[in-house]
Design a protein around this nucleic acid. Structure first.
Lengths: 236, 236
DNA sequence: AACCAGGTAAACATCCGAGGTCTTCGGGGA
DNA sequence: TCCCCGAAGACCTCGGATGTTTACCTGGTT
């Protein structure tokens, strides 16, 4: 195994064992390199790799630090990974989202505070009467993020966040091509909000299922009929 | 932005745009470095980072290649990320698994081939009458992996695989300390298998829910968080 | 005492070049 | 035809030199 990979493991273990706690600063490059028994060049490769997955945070002129290691940070890195998947697997991601989103919405109906729910209402109201498709999708993403956050499970929230990215493009495409999609989205958002506000987990779950299923069904048909559609739509 | 990060983005884009396809070989270090306008050292940092998340695969003496980019490969990298989470967030991961596992089991009941189901049966039979806890948990992991694979959704399968790792330790702990846990696990596995073999998605889903919930409830008590709110809503 | 500008030192960023090691592949002999 | 072996190509590792950025101390001013 290359020394760089060994170094990655060693640093990883230093963090897992608690020798390095979140927020801690690593020894300077030269020192750490000597301690791990490799050159600065190789150590830098290890550090850069751990940076990409948000485990370390390097600040030029200052030092290298362990991040907070919070779930949202580490799962954010998954967004980078998901970017590599093309449209042919987007249905699989959407299917997972179709499982998680209703569950998160039900949890939100139970766990969100009254203040959170009021904020959700306000967020819905910030949308124009005739929004652009991009604005609607951006609002859509934030709406579902607030709900996921309201589930009280940061892992679930981050996971849904990561899954929403790749499907956003599909939602924009749908908004542009399917008549009535915009209005239907608003109606369903309102319905989801009202179910949460009424503290009705099962109703909220059902509306969320309907909502995600709408995108999934449309996408399934679209991919079935017209093969490779236009992909030049700007992601939000 | 550091040149290394720019290089990461450029390589990423080369892959996303299709300039580099899965399995393709990258230009040699010196050549690619010149083309991207940076030194070999910096380029190597970028390559190493993309290796960690399984986007690139370097073979000494041969060259650097783009991996297959299959979902299971890229999501495997998430296991590395999850390793950094300690026990205090394991409940959150388990909660997500509690959502996904029943859904995957129900899908498996619908999609697994007869051959797959027979294989599942054989796998259950490979276990001794009095297995060690470690052997049981290993068998447990593989059992659920086969079911997740049977769901027909590679993204769901990989995600569950990643989530199973951190909870495996908890399951071992449980097997060692809770009387009857081993026998109960075997009974529930058999029940799940029979529900799948009978092509009863809802029954399979219910058994899976019961199964995962057993670990979750035990862990919740073991961690002493009796103040956790109610989460017993039934998945649809 | 509080505040601000300047300078210094520490740490990371980048580059270069020199060996070392491993894999692949083709040639020569049995 | 099969096996051994050597050469070439590609990545691995190292050490040092130089540039950039940031944090912090210092001194003076208000």
């Amino acid at each position: 195994m290359p020394v760089t990979d060994v170094a990655i493991d060693k640093i990883k273990n230093m963090i897992i064992t608690g020798e390095l706690a979140p927020g801690d600063r690593l020894p300077k490059e030269a020192e750490l390199a000597q301690r791990l028994g490799l050159s600065r060049s190789s150590l830098r490769e290890a550090v850069k790799a751990l940076c990409l997955i948000r485990v370390l945070d390097v600040r030029q002129g200052d030092g290298t630090y362990v991040t907070s290691l919070e779930p949202h940070l580490l799962l954010d890195a998954m967004t980078f990974v998901i970017d590599f998947h093309r449209d042919d697997t987007v249905l699989d991601f959407l299917a997972v989202r179709r499982i998680l989103e209703p569950a998160a919405t039900a949890l939100a109906a139970m766990h969100m505070s009254d203040a959170d729910i009021a904020e959700l209402r306000e967020h819905l109201d910030t949308l124009d009467d005739t929004p652009t498709v991009e604005a609607l999708v951006a609002n859509d993403l934030e709406f579902h993020r607030k709900i996921a956050d309201g589930s009280g499970n940061p892992v679930l929230c981050s996971l849904l966040d990561s899954l929403s990215g790749p499907t956003a493009r599909a939602r924009i495409w749908r908004g542009l091509t399917q008549e009535g999609a915009v209005a239907k989205t608003r109606e369903q958002h309102t319905a989801i909000y009202e179910a949460i506000a009424a503290r009705e987990p099962e109703l909220a779950r059902s509306w969320a299922t309907v909502h995600v299923n709408g995108v999934e069904q449309w996408l399934r048909n679209a991919l079935g009929s017209a093969d490779e559609p236009d992909t030049t739509v700007t992601p939000s």
